[in-house]
Amino acid sequence: MTDLRPKLVALAAALAAAALIAAPHVAGEGNLRYVVEIFCVFAFAQSWNFLAGYVGLMSFGQQLFIGLGAYFVFTISNTLGVNPFLMVPLAFVFSGAFAALISPLVFRLRDAYFAISIWVIAEIVRLFIAQRDIFGSVSGLPLIATRGMDRGLVSMWTFYLAALLAFLAVFGLYYLARSRFGLALAAVRDNEDTAASIGINVWWTRFAGFVIGCGFTGAAGAVYYMSVFQVQPGGAFDPNWMVIMLFIVIIGGVGTVEGPILGTAIYFLLRAFFSGTGNLYLMLLGAAAIAVMMVSSRGIWGVFHDRTGIDLFGVRRASGMDTEHKG
């Protein structure tokens, strides 16, 4: 028995890459901006899905890394006059390094305490930034460097960065989950004692997963705020980001590549539908997420997969053995 799926995913990745590269040349600027927002929100959600569903770390404070990534790019670009687009990979490094720095502290805490500790750190960082003039205090920072650049180029490069994030959030996650490191992450997530008993260093495996997930959130946060040319502490560190990530992942299906794709589509449809209702739609999101959780903790994609057996990005490694029937 040969598993065709990795080849199909590779083909899908090639097609997706071609479509994304062509997109800015065919789509209008307004559409591109909307897609950038969708891609960034999807990247936020997928990084939380990676942490909760693949690393086994449930954080309720991931808005921390959205804000850190954004403030890193804005501050460095504005003060040193560097091209902000080149700073996005460094936003990954900076946010990942911050995650590495708080790991020794937050990894001592378990479950709800871990989840809330990061939210507390997010609030502390938000208050810190809101009181410092170099970060523009409460009114935040504009993005200065792009003012002198060509408008079309800025929107194209913003799109490409967001597209890269969305691409990595699908195919990068798929290949990471199928890798040797992905197997170690899954083992640690499922049972840390057993993982240690087969020679896996549990602490470092979880640490690496946390740093990668938070770094990715930070890069996405940078691109999101670059696309609107300004950042404020109240918006960048807004706990509502967390509500949106939770909604998308829970409703779509945690621990799958497909779930958050579906969840993101549902989120933007609902938002368009209920626009003008103010914060009411956030409450509706919460209610919808709870309703889905009551039916199945594995979300819409989980239920769909159980009913149909369809698994587009199956990360399961096939044994190739002569089994009774496939399960």
Binding site: A186, D190, T194, A195, I198
Partner: peptide
């Protein structure tokens, strides 16, 4: 104490 979400093969493969 298996890795519950992984298959039997993946459990042994990890080891």
């Amino acid at each position: 104490q298996p890795f519950g979400q992984l298959t039997a093969y993946e459990n042994v493969l990890a080891a």
